[in-house]
């Protein structure tokens, strides 16, 4: 299981995987609230930096008890969004109809052991979470529309 760490939060680790052509999207969508990880639509993420900046922000909010959503994982999705509208963030960055590639992300304790089966419920091809792979999946027009709403500078 790929495992990333955030220097400032050394008691936590981030398990994150990228899945291509996931077959059981509908199944995942129906249980999205009960799964112990966040599911993010890979077409909304263009690079690792974008993803981890959201995780970092969520962790900060979590550390100081300022979470705006109910859990750390949902906060990660909210932090990806440029607006503070929770529903909109989930619709846009969460799993949705037509999603094919997903990023599964779980923030776990450093010594948690059951991490290897965490994402077993996902039926898709796991690929490396690299900037190249993300770059081949993201939808530029979508990101432009969502994250670059400043017409003045275009």
């Amino acid at each position: 299981m790929p495992y990333e760490s955030i220097p400032q939060f050394d008691t936590r680790g981030v398990c994150v995987s990228l899945f291509r052509d996931v077959k059981n999207i509908e199944e995942l969508r129906s249980k999205v609230g009960t799964m112990p990880f966040a599911v993010i639509d890979a077409s909304c993420v263009c690079c690792r930096e974008q993803l981890f900046s959201a995780v970092y922000k969520a962790l900060i909010e979590w550390k100081y008890n300022r979470l705006r959503t109910k859990a750390l994982h949902s906060e990660c999705i909210l932090s990806l969004s440029p607006t503070s509208n929770i529903g909109e963030a989930f619709r846009r960055f969460g799993i949705k109809e037509g999603t094919r590639n997903i990023i599964c992300l779980a923030v776990v304790g450093k010594n948690e052991t059951q991490t290897s089966e965490l994402f077993d419920v996902v039926d898709g091809e796991e690929v490396e979470l690299s900037d190249e792979n993300l770059g081949s999946m993201f939808d530029l027009e979508m990101i432009k529309k969502v994250c670059w709403p400043l017409k003045v500078f275009q």
């Binding site: 760490s5 955030i6 220097p7 930096e49 981890f52 970092y56």
Partner: peptide, 9 residues
């Protein structure tokens, strides 16, 4: 010299 979240950077 440590990036806050993106170790690969």
């Amino acid at each position: 010299n440590v990036h806050p979240y993106n170790a690969s950077a």
